[in-house]
Design a protein around this nucleic acid. Structure first.
Ligand SMILES: [Mn+2]
Ligand SMILES: [Mn+2]
Ligand SMILES: [Zn+2]
Ligand SMILES: [Zn+2]
Lengths: 143, 143
DNA sequence: ACTGAAACTGAGATTGAATTGCAATTTAAC
DNA sequence: GTTAAATTGCAATTCAATCTCAGTTTCAGT
């Protein structure tokens, strides 16, 4: 479970499992979906725990480093994260008309990407594929 | 040609083809590859033209809006652009260590994405695939 | 050419996410 | 307990990007 993994990670680096770090960890895994650091900071505050913005940022970096959390994307506003432990990898299709997000996963696609990386002597670790267009609903509505 | 396209775009929006805007346009198309706004600003200066940072940023937005330039990605530092007019579609691998960007294109990959879209009744029009990891150079340097 | 209204510019101020310096505090090994 | 190392929060700082605005340029209409 994520708590164990994080404490282990900290131990190996000579870092300490402080209340603040654990509060961030707990809050990150208390809900599903994407979030910004500021949103997380407010949730922690609201949950009665305490952790400064600085600690939230610092702990998020640690969580990413140990693989429990992933930086999903960078928007004009800032970074967006999601916890990944317990969730499997997927990519997204986003409808330009209604904003619907379709998640998908293709083994073939993943393998093909690995092949392409190898051809380029590149050690790929993560990727983001975002397909934009129009969903079925919006397409039929149009005609 | 890009000059014509940009002037047309400006005309339709009631905007004017000022020296500064044309200087930015020219510089963007004077070389191939990816660039940051600051780098473009310095190139323009060095080329003997004049355009403030503000104008460079403002003009870049216009160039993106009219489709001649594309925002490739956002790094911790800032945005990276490339001119697209005259270039065919490709995706990117980005080295997390040195920032090098490798361009690639795979017909198979494109077809596979079309298949997946079809399976999801989604009419895909564009996509962005960004693979992150470590390039050959940085990997050998490490060990 | 001249004129005026609208568009445009650059310099500096401002924004805001993210990082950092540092003195006070907490942790945990001994 | 004692003590060294790690950690915290706050405020200061960074830095790309945006904005403000007074002076300048553009160009359609005459
Ligand atoms: Mn994928
Ligand atoms: Mn490219
Ligand atoms: Zn839709
Ligand atoms: Zn590299």
């Amino acid at each position: 479970m994520e708590n164990k993994i994080f404490r282990n990670f900290l131990g190996e680096k000579g870092l300490k499992p402080t209340k603040e770090r654990i509060a961030v960890l707990s809050e990150v895994f208390s809900f599903h979906g994407h979030f910004e650091p500021e949103y997380l900071y407010l949730r922690i505050k609201n949950a009665g725990s305490k952790a400064s913005r600085a600690s939230v940022y610092r702990t998020l970096s640690l969580l990413v480093e140990c693989g429990l959390v992933k930086k999903v994307t960078r928007t004009e506003k800032g970074n967006i994260y999601e916890h990944t432990y317990g969730h499997s990898h997927h990519d997204h299709m986003i409808c330009d008309a209604c904003g619907e997000i379709i998640e998908f996963y293709s083994e073939k696609l993943e393998n093909l990407q690995d092949e392409i990386c190898a051809e380029n002597s590149f050690a790929g670790s993560t990727h983001t594929l975002e397909i934009r267009g129009h969903c079925k609903k919006c397409r039929t509505k149009q005609s």
